[in-house]
Design a protein around this nucleic acid. Sequence first.
DNA 1: CTGACTGCAAAAGGTTTGCAAAAAG
DNA 2: CTTTTTGCAAACCTTTTGCAGTCAG
Lengths: 142, 142
Amino acid sequence: MARDWNDVLRDHGFRITPQRQLVLEAVNSLGHATPEALLTEVQKTASAVNLSTIYRTLEVLEQVGLVTHAHIGHGAPTYHSVDDEAHIHLVCDTCSVVTSIHADVAEVFVRLLREKAGFETDVAHVSVHGQCATCVDRQKLL
Amino acid sequence: MARDWNDVLRDHGFRITPQRQLVLEAVNSLGHATPEALLTEVQKTASAVNLSTIYRTLEVLEQVGLVTHAHIGHGAPTYHSVDDEAHIHLVCDTCSVVTSIHADVAEVFVRLLREKAGFETDVAHVSVHGQCATCVDRQKLL
DNA sequence: CTGACTGCAAAAGGTTTGCAAAAAG
DNA sequence: CTTTTTGCAAACCTTTTGCAGTCAG
């Protein structure tokens, strides 16, 4: 596992660079991370790395299937390793907390979309907005 | 119906202005629209209206519950009338086409999220990424 | 060596803000 | 008249791009 990421890149005609290795490691170690957060992490090791390199690297890594991203909230997308278990992001519009839940809960939903619309859902990319348990409870008290 | 939008605003302590009326009308007539698109629409009637007014107005209209927005793709959010039937956006990551499907298909999904995570889903806000029927078919041919 | 990759700086896209003038109630 | 709302311009933040130098293969 630790050695085939570079094969994946090479197989797609990309070169192996320290920057790419660092970004990939940062994605793996941070779990969920915005480009900005990845930059900070990468710069702990290599302070000269530029933000635009992060973006370009993520594009490459995503293209070869080593990472994916999901759109949470308004601002920044978050990237995570493809190795991670498929999960869905639940974004609370009240308190902005993001929780994850196993993608299994979407099984029926995904099947319905396939049957009714011929749509193949990328489960990991889904982000669901609404109100988290905590905020729902808090609201009941008022 | 045509007359109570201003009551809604007033009840929340907001004032009635031509700009707010025009933005609301634009949201209703365009169905799905980005702030930029709304500006263009509004300017057909009142060319002096400014983009920042559009943003501020949308914020107010959303706050009082007359419109909502959804995050489709990377770029701009799209706003629509709350009167619209609840629907889910299916975003094709291959061809970028956005289709809508009635929110009923998410019923089981929403129930599961409520039961398993206590999460109350805002169905209309969900945008689902994946591959549309057309692109799925096209890929099979290759 | 040669083309892919990087750093830098500047541009672009979308959204927000401060302020003075205009309009609503 | 008082307070909100607007227009304008500038600031902001995130992402993208052009270019020249650097590095991987």
